[in-house]
Design a binder for these strands. Structure first.
Length: 301
DNA sequence: CCGTGTCAAGTCTGC
DNA sequence: GCAGACTTGACACGG
């Protein structure tokens, strides 16, 4: 079991997602920004290792505008060395990374232009992980997409586009249940059609349930992961007390987290904590898992 | 220099 | 029909 947090570290005073406005794009500006972002990504991973946080979601802004037509800079070549070095560091220390393109990626869109842009964005995400020379356990997670008033047809469109993706994307892509449209049951059905592994999000599952208990949900989604995909990943969070629907909690709810560990104990999973205070909650979670005693963190094996 | 409006992209809800 | 949520930070403009 590895514990992780997404995209941002609030303790070390740098961001791997520095960006700039499209209107101020230049190849020089891009290179300058990516150089800084990679430097910070390495710093974050070093911090994480020190704290036994062995899972991290790399923010999509690592290479700003990478899938936009304006970006013609050969960033993969320019930064081949730092990418490889970061990947080597992660691999050497048994650390796992993932990515999560945001809501603009909709591969089941009706508009072919949107599908095309979405696929370009997936290609970028896969290229980052490829540049780090990581194996198939470094995942890119997306949602199913839009419903457009006909879920069945929209799920079929997902399967159809999926089947035409190239291998470089297919080996990394996993699909996650969302908080209002596609449930875990929908994702499992799509898995049956396509073979895509299902990433279970506990919080979304609460908001958008499909009659499966949490333990079964972890088990069933875990069974969709192929050899080479690594340990099944799970997104964990709890609602912000008194917050609007869908808001993530400010800090880890230790009691809830312990219960989640107990419920899912038979299945080994890597847990991504989608909690606002980021590495702070990850530190707390690592402490809980350690005390729990039933799991060993890979670094301590 | 600082406060704040705005930022590549999509879908869906609600006024 | 259009603004706002989703989730969030931070760029970059204007005062």
């Amino acid at each position: 079991m590895k514990i992780g947090y997404p995209c941002i570290n609030r303790s070390i005073g740098c961001s791997s997602g520095r960006t700039f406005r499209l209107s101020s794009y230049s190849d020089e500006r891009l290179e300058e920004t990516v150089r800084e972002n990679l430097r910070c990504l390495e710093e974050i991973l070093r911090y994480n290792l020190k704290e036994s946080i062995l899972f991290f979601r790399i923010g999509s802004g690592l290479v700003p505008f990478a899938s936009h037509p304006v970006c013609t800079a050969p960033w993969e070549e320019t930064f081949a060395e730092p990418f490889r070095e970061i990947g080597r560091f992660a691999h050497e220390h048994g650390m796992r990374v993932s990515m999560h393109p945001d809501q603009f990626v909709v591969i089941n869109a009706k508009d072919p232009g949107i599908v095309e842009k979405s696929v370009a964005e997936l290609r970028y995400h896969a290229a980052v992980l490829d540049a780090m020379h990581l194996d198939g356990s470094a995942k890119v997670q997306i949602h199913v997409g839009g419903v457009y008033g006909d879920k069945k047809a929209s799920m079929e469109r997902f399967a159809s586009v999926y089947s035409r993706l190239d291998e470089g994307i297919l080996r990394r892509l996993v699909v996650e249940n969302d908080d209002s449209r596609y449930t875990l049951a929908d994702c499992l059905r799509i898995h049956e059609e396509t073979g895509i592994p299902v990433l279970f999000d506990v919080f979304h599952h609460q908001l958008n349930p499909s009659g499966i208990a949490v333990a079964g949900a972890v088990e069933q989604s875990g069974a969709t992961w192929r050899p080479g995909d690594g340990i099944p990943m799970t997104d964990y969070s709890t609602p912000m007390p008194g917050g609007r629907r869908g808001r993530h909690a400010e800090s880890l709810d230790a009691a809830d987290f312990e219960q989640f560990l107990a419920e899912t104990a038979p299945t080994d999973i890597d847990i991504m904590l989608e909690i606002k205070d980021k590495e702070k909650s990850a530190l707390a979670a690592v402490g809980i898992v350690r005390r729990d005693g039933r799991f060993l963190l890979p670094a301590e094996r």
